[in-house]
Design a protein around this nucleic acid. Structure first.
Lengths: 297, 297
DNA sequence: TAAAAATACTCCATAGGTATTTTAT
DNA sequence: ATAAAATACCTATGGAGTATTTTTA
């Protein structure tokens, strides 16, 4: 059986006239009769009552017609879904992100993506950079918003956001009344930082500028969450250096101050998007296209 | 597009290997490649990622596969429904019946029909004989259980039930203590009957036996429903002659007595089944077959 | 170099065309 | 007599086969 048989049947059932149906199908009447006969033979039951002068659907033919109509609807649906999926308008995407991306690129990116691909299902995972790379390789996420560098031959990445660092001080700290902080004035302060492994691309520049300012920071406490670092600063446990977008999350007892130094300290905190190099999912390409259009956020 | 394309696609998508898929489909590999290419060209999107060494489904291909699988399920369903309908195992039947059939054939017939064709939807209409013939002609019912005779060239009918008549008397009537009633003893009684037009095939024999017994019944009241006749008898409005199966519906204040006469009064009340002569619905044929098997009830 | 898909061509099965017959109105 | 479907037979499109090339792992 072929779709042709079903198309022909459907037309004859609608017209209830072989001649007119044949005309509508742009074929001659005899082959149409033949095809319907073949179909009936294959099905094992009669579709039409024929009286050489007029035809009518048998009850089985009526029931079959209803079902066949649904087949064509299902076919249209299949084609439509395929097309939409190929254009990235349908599907799902799993996105990993570092906690600090919540304050800047993530909401903007999600907003724009949602607008353009409203029917794509988005799955979000807050993960550290190193875990994102693992999940990406395992296929558990499709793209990641991470702190560079990206290690892995099978990944591609693109920096999409850069920002400056700020010093976080307890509100009653003796430096808190200054407008800017000279980096070297922090030489003897206790530092609260995140473990290097979590984001070497952010950790290393922080250490580097301290060393350029003539000291190695005394790390008295490490925590994974930036929010926790801020909490400990407010609790007078020490000071920290953090990306400036942390200021979005206001917190009692903490002040943020720009850094000044005799050397460049501009825009050292970067966020990049990573994806699998061989990945050609239209949904993911759609997201990447969107980011490349904006270039950066 | 033909079902062939979808079958081939489905197989290749399952095997993920053109060679093996071709083998499974009992065709050579090159034509299979060609057909898939044709399908992709027609659809307007790629189904497979090809790397000359291995293939994988594109996201659109994956989405399409899910839908195509449903098309084949729908096709199987269509064939199954068609077959079942052609065998009369599926469908609907609309049955008309005279009220008095409720006491005898109708329940037996429905029971047997339900057992054999459990998935056929049955629609029941209690109607007088004359209205059943109208509904039958209009296609509002498919078969009717009526009181003969049947008038109409395009109908076929078959007697399926015959029963005797009984006299219905008020319980305190002076004849009520007898075991049988001599018909002539009713000569001066007031009669309650149904209008002749409703069922001439039952009305005329009743009049005929009365006349044979030497009197014309005095009809003081006509009612359409047999139940109503019984009610009026119990209210001492008069006597009646009814089919014996009316006794099934027990009622206070009424007694039923067999008729005796010097001539035959046996089995004068008949019920027949009528159907359209040109009707070849498998469901209706199924019901008629069932009745012919039992011959009568 | 070996395995797998694509390309190039050839062939024939069958969808579809034309001419005619059959049959019910 | 006529309209409509079926039958008979013929034609040709395109589906499938064989041989070969291309590609990459």
């Amino acid at each position: 059986m072929e779709l042709r048989h079903l198309r022909y049947f459907s037309t004859v059932a609608t017209e209830l006239h072989f001649g007119r149906a044949a005309e509508k199908l742009h074929i001659a009447q005899p082959p149409l009769s033949k095809q319907i006969q073949d179909l009936e033979a294959e099905l094992g039951f009669e579709l039409f009552n024929r009286t050489k002068r007029s035809i009518s659907l048998t009850p089985a033919g009526q029931a079959f017609l209803v079902e066949v109509t649904q087949i064509f609807q299902q076919l249209d649906r299949a084609i439509d879904i395929g097309k939409k999926t190929s254009r990235g308008e349908l599907g799902q995407i799993s996105i990993g992100f570092v906690g600090s991306a919540t304050y800047n690129i993530l909401p903007v990116m999600l907003q724009q993506f949602r607008d353009r691909y409203p029917h794509v299902q988005i799955e979000l995972h807050e993960l550290t950079t190193d875990r994102q790379l693992i999940w990406l390789r395992e296929g558990r996420i499709d793209v990641g918003l991470i702190r560079p560098p990206v290690i892995g031959i099978d990944f591609a990445s693109q920096i999409i956001f850069q920002e400056s660092l700020v010093v976080a001080l307890p509100i009653d700290h003796h430096l808190a009344r200054l407008d800017t902080i000279e980096l070297s004035s922090l030489a003897t302060e206790p530092f609260i930082l995140f473990p290097r492994q979590l984001a070497p691309g952010l950790y290393d520049p922080i250490i580097a500028i301290c060393q350029a300012a003539g000291f190695s920071p005394q790390v008295v406490q490490e925590c994974i969450q930036m929010q926790t670092i801020v909490s400990l600063v407010s609790a007078n446990m020490g000071v920290s250096i953090l990306p400036e977008s942390i200021q979005e999350a206001q917190r009692q007892g903490v002040v943020y101050k720009p850094i000044v130094a005799s050397f460049g300290t501009e825009k050292l905190a970067t966020i990049a998007i990573v994806w699998r190099l061989n990945d050609d999912s239209p949904t993911i390409n759609g997201l990447l296209d969107l980011i490349l259009e904006n270039n950066r956020f």
